Amino acid sequence: MPDLDSSVLILALLASLVTVAVSMTAAALRAAQLGVVAVVDVAWGAGFVAVALVSGVIGLLVSDALTTWRTVLLMVLVAVWGGRLAWHVRSRAVGEHQGKEDPRYAEMLGGSLAEVGMGTAVRRVFLVQGFAQWFVSLPVVIGAVVAATWWPVVVLGVVVWAVGLYFEAVGDRQLREYKARPREERPPVMDEGLWGLTRHPNYFGDACVWWGLWLAGGLASGWLLGLVTVLCPVAMTFFLRNVTGAKLLEKKMSQRDGWDEYAARVPMFAPRPLGRP
């Protein structure tokens, strides 16, 4: 890698780290004001957009025309995904969940924000998610400032990203429509549409989005950078499935009537093939 590219890459990595720090600090201040740690979910999507924009601007200032095309592409992909996610989470925060703590964060903290204090919330939530956000975003940061080596891999990444966005956006919409129905007119467990293929289409879609961004940003930059950054989508998938996402949510969902039958029929994460019983 040329010296100029190395210095630009280091600059982009540092700038992205500062961007994440500012985003999470703002989220922590807002959480302290509202008394709800779940504010961090809005900063999660919006923070990725900010990182993509900052690293993209750096890339646009130093890149040639061919590299610029991929830089803009990555900025658009992250902006569409992160902007939709931030808007969706904020819509819930000012709607059905207004003023309420997310049960996932209450379990992480061991109580409400008022009970455990802001220091605990910063250590267990904001610092952890801030580092995770910076780490997961590395393929995007690298792709924004390094020339693409394999363009077919960029195309494949966009396809995987699109599949992920479909599962996430449509799954969220179907769940919103399910919750809007009168309680007596809906099944106790949502098992319609994409929710009949996987118990967590939104989390599965989220993972696909970041595998797509790794393909388009990390692996397409060369096998070495692809190998260095492959842990980024691996970490995102692991946390979505086993830590802060699906598994933690299912502790609450498993108490509903009909859950055991639903869980036996529908896989937890990766969707079953269409038509397969």
Rank of each mutant, 00 (worst) to 15 (best):
D3K: 14
S6Q: 12
V8L: 09
L13W: 07
A26G: 03
L34D: 02
V39Y: 08
V40E: 01
V42C: 04
G45E: 08
V49R: 13
V49Q: 05
V51K: 01
A52E: 01
S55D: 07
V57H: 02
T71C: 13
M75S: 01
V78P: 13
W81R: 03
G82F: 09
A86Q: 07
W87K: 11
R92D: 06
K100G: 00
E107N: 11
L109A: 07
S112E: 02
L113Q: 03
V122F: 06
G130R: 08
G130W: 03
F135N: 04
F135P: 00
V140D: 10
V145A: 02
V153F: 09
V160N: 09
W161P: 04
G164N: 14
L165A: 12
R176F: 03
W195F: 03
G196L: 14
R199V: 04
P201T: 08
N202A: 06
C208K: 13
V209W: 05
W210M: 11
W210T: 08
G212K: 13
G226I: 11
L227W: 02
V230H: 09
T237K: 11
R241Q: 14
T244V: 13
L249I: 12
K252Y: 07
Q255P: 02
D257C: 00
Y262H: 13
P271R: 12
R272E: 05
